[in-house]
């Protein structure tokens, strides 16, 4: 009885807190969405508003005019996101699993080798040098895929911690006694047990690839290879540039068309909506008890 009441209290409390929290997350987003449908002059005169005083599709119409570029960039982004996430998950789990094994010799130095990369980096110039001069990646799709994103120490350690805490060593032992090799154990037992973390890291990597504009900014000059975020972020960067070089921006004020407020919002919307659509796919694996079920089955 007591327990029931407690459980109900938890549900009520939980919903209340989470609803408030969700509102804080959703409202700004709705504002953004509404603004993308608002007439520009209205935005500049009276600011952003949830209820457009004057509805306008101009921003999207403008995007539609550029649809060949935008569609191509969508294609590139999707390709890079899917391939990148797949490679990245494979490499991350392959590195994370061995160093999670308490019996593996040298696992501490290995973990340190991974961890160290998160604290120090050589900076942009040397990285650029390595990828363009040692490996000729400039203006290739690989430049969007490989530098910086493919594997990061953070995910490896996250995965390692998950393996360490949720895979019972006993299962591995018994599999070994049954004669399974290490690699087989990894694929047949460890990975299926780790769907929640794979989904989490897959989600993070997916978002990272989807949202990445930096590689494009650095390694790509060919407009045919621009990813979606690349196109979007260039516009934002153009605005930021103006304040850094007053002389030139005075010179260029006639040549430069700054994107309007609603347009800025519209490009955010078309960039974010696909992630929201893909989210349920990852969520499928966020199910309690999946681990235990797999072991028993």
């Amino acid at each position: 009885m007591n327990h029931n009441r407690e459980a109900r209290a938890w549900q009520w409390g939980g919903h209340t807190v989470l609803l408030i929290y969700s509102a804080a997350c959703i409202l700004p987003f709705l504002l953004l969405f509404a603004s993308s449908f608002t007439d520009d002059k209205v935005i500049m005169q009276s600011g952003y508003s949830f209820f457009p005083e004057k509805f306008s599709l101009d921003a999207y119409r403008y995007l539609w005019n550029e649809s060949t570029d935008i569609l191509r960039s969508y294609g590139i982004t999707i390709l890079i996101t899917v391939a990148g996430t797949a490679f990245s998950l494979a490499m991350t789990s392959m590195l994370g699993y061995p160093i999670s094994r308490r019996d593996l010799p040298y696992r501490h130095p290995l973990a340190f080798y991974v961890f160290f990369t998160m604290l120090f980096n050589g900076g942009l110039v040397p990285t650029y040098f390595v990828y363009t001069q040692v490996f000729d990646l400039k203006n290739t799709l690989a430049a969007l895929l490989i530098p910086g994103l493919l594997l990061n120490g953070f995910n490896v350690l996250l995965m390692r911690t998950f393996f360490m805490t949720t895979i019972p060593p006993a299962i591995l032992e018994s599999a070994k006694i049954d004669g399974a090799g290490e690699i087989r154990i990894f694929y047949k037992i460890v990975l299926p047990l780790s769907l929640p973390i794979l989904a989490t890291i897959g989600l993070f990597q997916g978002i990272a690839y989807w949202n990445d504009w930096f590689n494009g900014l650095i390694y790509i000059t060919n407009p045919k290879l621009f990813s979606l975020q690349n196109i979007l972020n260039r516009i934002m960067l153009d605005i930021q540039f103006l304040s850094t070089d007053p002389a030139l921006s005075a010179q260029a004020s006639g040549s430069m068309d700054l994107p309007t407020a609603s347009f800025r919002m519209a490009i955010v919307v078309i960039g974010v909506v696909p992630i929201l659509l893909a989210y349920p796919f990852f969520q499928k694996y966020f199910v309690k008890g999946i681990a235990i079920g797999a072991v028993k089955g």
């Binding site: 980096n121 530098p147 120490g153």
Partner: peptide, 11 residues
Amino acid sequence: LLINNYLPMLG
């Protein structure tokens, strides 16, 4: 990690 992180550290 060697290529992406350690090599550029020489920089």
